[in-house]
Computed example of a mutant assay.
Amino acid sequence: MTGGGDPVVRRDRFSGGPARSFLSSMDGDGRIFEADLAVDRAHVVMLAEQDVIGDEAAAAILGALADVEAAGFDALPPSEDVHEAIETAVVEAVGRDGGKLHTARSRNDEVAACIRYRLRADLLDAIEVVVALRSALADVAAAEAETVMPGFTHLQPAQPTTVAHWALSYAGTLARDTGRLCDAYGRTNESPLGAAAFAGTTFGVDRERTAALLGFDGVVANAADAAASRDFLLEAVSALASVAVTCSGLAADVVFFANRGFVEVSDDYASTSSIMPQKKNPDTMELVRATAGDAVGAQQALATTLQGLPRAYNRDLQRATGHAWTAVDGVTSAVEVAAGVVATAG
């Protein structure tokens, strides 16, 4: 029966060797610590409801998980990854019954669920800041509807336009970027739990129940697809890269406009020079502009890691996930700064 192995034997057999640190993902797993606890709780509740494990064992495991959460990620025992570390802590707390936490489950569907659970929250944060930037641009357009400015082609003055027209051109692109992020969220928000290693489990699990407990919209129907696919990561990072490219153009315009004296960036978003204090540099927007390189690089790195993988779980995927975190963190921060610059510029 898939997912029914003895966790104590498994840990003892594969706990040493010179490659342990190379295989470990613990340095980056703090990001999905809370997600793993949520996934564990939903799985245990479902197992108890399905009479796969007893209520007493389920209660003991849930109590141990509460203690693990209270102690925090840094208190976890040394392990190959956060999933194994939490399981080890539960077994140490409640004995061999703690191993029932892993019944009918593989780390393959577990980690996929944790990534989706965390990424969907990050995507909502990204959507929120993009909407805030769109709002800031709309406010500028409303305030500057009749403010004339030169329009440029090839950075040469070409035709008269208005500040509102310029601002709403970016708001329109960002609206489509928002749609792309929402699409990525929808395809991320599906549960892979119950897929086990890649072919499901003979235990009588209820996949829809764990999906509902975790707030997923539904399940990934095919078990191999659920455990092995990371196209949702690629879609999310691609959407984030599109946002970053949009914002790089906005940032380039603001830097250029500041050079021409058309706009003054607020002191909160500018700096000066250590040797030329008369200067006011719009350098936050230079960093916003550069974020596109980081995001597109993450997109390329992720696609390169995923290409050519056989249809099964492969350890390469452990290296893939970090590119998504790099993109979502960098782009969200950059968009938040861009919104602040637009809202406060004079």
Rank of each mutant, 00 (worst) to 15 (best):
R116M: 09
E87C: 12
S106C: 06
E128C: 08
H83D: 08
A104M: 13
H102I: 03
P77G: 02
A89Q: 07
L101K: 06
L76Y: 02
A112E: 07
F73L: 04
C114F: 08
E87A: 05
K100F: 09
E80M: 05
A75M: 04
V82M: 05
V94T: 09
D74I: 00
E84G: 07
S79H: 01
D109K: 04
R105W: 10
V82Y: 01
A85K: 10
I127R: 15
H83F: 03
A75V: 02
R107T: 05
I127W: 12
Y117W: 11
S106R: 01
E110I: 10
L124H: 15
G95T: 01
L124D: 12
E80D: 09
L101Q: 04
L123T: 14
V90N: 12
D97G: 08
R116C: 11
H83K: 09
T103C: 11
R120F: 07
D74Q: 06
A89F: 00
G99V: 00
A121K: 08
R105K: 11
F73P: 00
E92K: 08
N108E: 13
E80R: 11
E80G: 07
R118A: 12
R118Y: 11
E92I: 00
D122F: 08
V90L: 06
R120H: 08
R96W: 01
E84P: 01
E128H: 15
S106L: 09
I127V: 15
L124I: 15
N108K: 07
D109N: 08
R116E: 02
E110C: 05
V82E: 00
A112P: 11
A93S: 14
L124M: 14
S79I: 01
A71N: 01
H102A: 04
K100W: 04
A93Q: 10
A126K: 06
A112G: 04
L123N: 14
C114M: 14
A112C: 11
E110H: 14
D81G: 04
D97V: 11
A93Y: 03
A89Y: 00
V111R: 00
E110K: 11
E92M: 05
H102V: 02
S79N: 02
K100D: 07
V91R: 03
D122L: 14
D125H: 15
R105H: 12
A93C: 10
V91D: 02
V94L: 03
T88H: 11
T88Y: 05
A113I: 01
F73G: 09
E87V: 08
L123S: 10
A75L: 03
R105D: 02
R116S: 04
V94G: 00
